[in-house]
Design a protein around this nucleic acid. Sequence first.
DNA 1: GGCAGTCTGGTAAGCGCTTACCCTGTTCGT
DNA 2: ACGAACAGGGTAAGCGCTTACCAGACTGCC
Lengths: 353, 353
Amino acid sequence: MPRRATIADVAALANVSSATVSRALSGNYPVAQATRARIEAAVSELGYVVNAQARALAGLPTRTVGIIINEIVDSFYAYVARGVEQEAAASGRLCLVCCTHGDPRQELAFLDLLHEQRADAVILVGGSISDKRHAGEIIARGKSLRDTGSLLIHCGRATPSEDIAAVEYDNGGGAFAATDHLLTNGHRRILYLGGPKRLSTSEDRLEGHKRALASRGVEVDPDLIQLGGFGQRFGYERLKTVLAQGAPSFTAVFAANDNTAIGAYQALEEAGLRIPEDISVVGYDDLPAASLLRPALTTVNIPLEEMGRRAVRLAVAHGNEYADAYSVASHNVRLGTHLVLRDSVGPARRKRR
Amino acid sequence: MPRRATIADVAALANVSSATVSRALSGNYPVAQATRARIEAAVSELGYVVNAQARALAGLPTRTVGIIINEIVDSFYAYVARGVEQEAAASGRLCLVCCTHGDPRQELAFLDLLHEQRADAVILVGGSISDKRHAGEIIARGKSLRDTGSLLIHCGRATPSEDIAAVEYDNGGGAFAATDHLLTNGHRRILYLGGPKRLSTSEDRLEGHKRALASRGVEVDPDLIQLGGFGQRFGYERLKTVLAQGAPSFTAVFAANDNTAIGAYQALEEAGLRIPEDISVVGYDDLPAASLLRPALTTVNIPLEEMGRRAVRLAVAHGNEYADAYSVASHNVRLGTHLVLRDSVGPARRKRR
DNA sequence: GGCAGTCTGGTAAGCGCTTACCCTGTTCGT
DNA sequence: ACGAACAGGGTAAGCGCTTACCAGACTGCC
């Protein structure tokens, strides 16, 4: 059973020292053409593959970036991950993907695991729960990561500390635009559906919604705010429950994200309500599913992929000017969102005609 | 600027040797309660985090598994990745995810990168192009990987060699079932749409389709076989082209995968053809999008997540009985597929009534 | 009381690579 | 013609961890 070849084997076969082999391979030091050729021959003859662990241990960066997301099959996260992966691959880095399934403790556990792996950067994606203790834990790990030359970047979540860079998007603004669009179409009673409580993402969206209402002097009716989850299931069940309580007192629903909107579609369909004739719907995220729905869903677009790319760039840029990693005021980034008009919003129906 | 703490620092602070610290941390050797406590105190005081690279270099497994997929935002791959991630996480392993975007050369490049990383296992997902040279390259890397104690597993693709384990699914069987269902509904002229040529996945599906036709004595009409791609775009454009050539000569379309079916839906919609009244449609994969479509798409379910899990288990099981890694006849796995009936198939229309 | 067996813990040899430091020739500039 | 600068290459000291091997201190048993 062949043992894996080491640099020493290659060196022996090529009749040079292991230092020369190392130099020829990393190409950061002059090596004579002839020597290089002999080394390359030896490498392919032995099927030599450099050992990344040894390399990292010797002080080189690991060329891996970690990314912590909720759920890989959720398009929201998948697109961010794609951006991260692309940008990472562009610089020859590999991606360590971790899924928390929404468990904040997992978040911390993965942070530790990625620290063990000495990932060049770790990117934490998605809304954060509002919890002082948890935030503290994150900050501590951020510091600790930085002490090893790695960088923690928040992506799509506000930074809990000056020291942690973040790539955000105009979450409240998108919600404002969506609600404003509904208002412009004459809707005054809008059901706000979905979004876990105490999650920054939901809170920001709800805030934007309320701000839009306020800007037109529409009062918020607590009954029209139905928080709870970000899933299709939640959208379906909750809306069904609300609908079961009698004729809808609203003319539109603002689903806190597209998944919830999908659930809302089902509930509306079952209740025999037409979109947008009877009820208008807007979503948030602009996932591919939004344009698959019939009628196609009007929703807020987030530059998810770009966010992922930016996050990596932020981390890697810092990594380059190594000495500055400590002094640089983390250049936060905030990207814009915009409403994508499709077919799920119509004029508000006259009051029980 | 704090330097990262090493095991030696912890040892010094706890007044023991580094060996004892190592033992206390990995817990595979008796360490006195009191000593252990002192060590733990030192660890948390220093914020010590073990260095995975050093550990790996010292001979322990890296506890990472690599997975090579086409595209992370494609649900097909995302679900497999999810299974892999889950199973990996269950054994405390991290996942290195690589996306080839369909480029076979990338496949090889990532295989090398994962080899460098000494991943405990690497899982290659999705159809393979039919190319002797490429297959040879894969086999070579599989061997080389095994020489380092790692294992290459194929997932959703047939193994090119006895030495490489694979988790497959009954691809042809699913296609057979789909076509058979169409035949049962009276369809005789079925447009087979999509699937890149020379890709094992497409070839197997087409084979199942033809087999079903043959079993009912229906001849295959080459004009009704429209190969080319697996994307939504392809499905749309190609079907549009076909439709532009005059009244459809078929009563059903078998989309080689759900994405193609989505494109087909668009083309049909634009052409004013109703599903399933005018044209029936079946897809393949049973992605979440299939049930979002209206009418909901009848399609073939593949246990994607389970495949991912199995792949990891296959690799890890072998890893356990280390000595056998060489002798064990790779226990291939083949999972079943089944047709999911929804609303996109109806009885064949009478011939131009 | 002597000795085998059990607990604990230390010593030190690697794991495979990079790179600071050193050395030998060449090649130039002036 | 001579020192400087550079190309090319070797030596060996780590990087941080695990673990084989060894040793002292008890324990209990005959």
